[in-house]
């Protein structure tokens, strides 16, 4: 039982990171912290993909007569795309935070809600 739990340690890390990120997004009022949470949430999915492509004892997928067992490169390539998407999302989110700060003078969600309700 314990062996089985430990054997899947990569999934446990993924789940813990995923929930941590999700919790930060929901619970924090600071918009930058929300973005940090969103990043952790996305990173957990990157780890899910990357660790699923690993083959025990496998090498990097290089065409060489000595290499018989190699890791599956496809999930790694897929996640490169997702990482780019994540970077773009973070950049856009931070740009919005800057604009929000210029327009409202704050980046705390509860203060923003108050100012929006008054208007």
């Amino acid at each position: 039982m314990l062996r089985e739990i430990l054997a899947h340690y990569n999934y446990w890390i993924v789940i813990v990171l995923m929930m941590t990120g999700f919790y930060i997004v929901v619970s924090r009022g600071n918009l930058v912290k929300k973005l940090v949470g969103l990043n952790i949430f996305q990173t957990s999915v990157f780890l899910l993909y990357i660790s699923m492509g690993k083959v025990a004892g496998g090498s990097a997928p290089i065409l060489d007569p000595d290499i018989k067992v190699y890791a599956n490169p496809l999930p790694h390539v897929l996640i490169l795309t997702a990482i780019v998407v994540g970077v773009a999302t973070t950049a856009l989110g931070l740009a919005l935070v800057v604009r929000i700060r210029e327009a409202y003078g704050t980046i705390e969600e509860d203060e923003l809600d108050l100012m929006d309700d008054e208007a």
């Binding site: 997004v25 918009l31 919005l96 929000i100 327009a103």
Partner: peptide, 14 residues
């Protein structure tokens, strides 16, 4: 529009 977009960004990304 900025806060609306940010909210959409967070929920859309999730």
């Amino acid at each position: 529009a900025l806060t609306a977009s940010f909210q959409y960004l967070v929920m859309g990304t999730i």
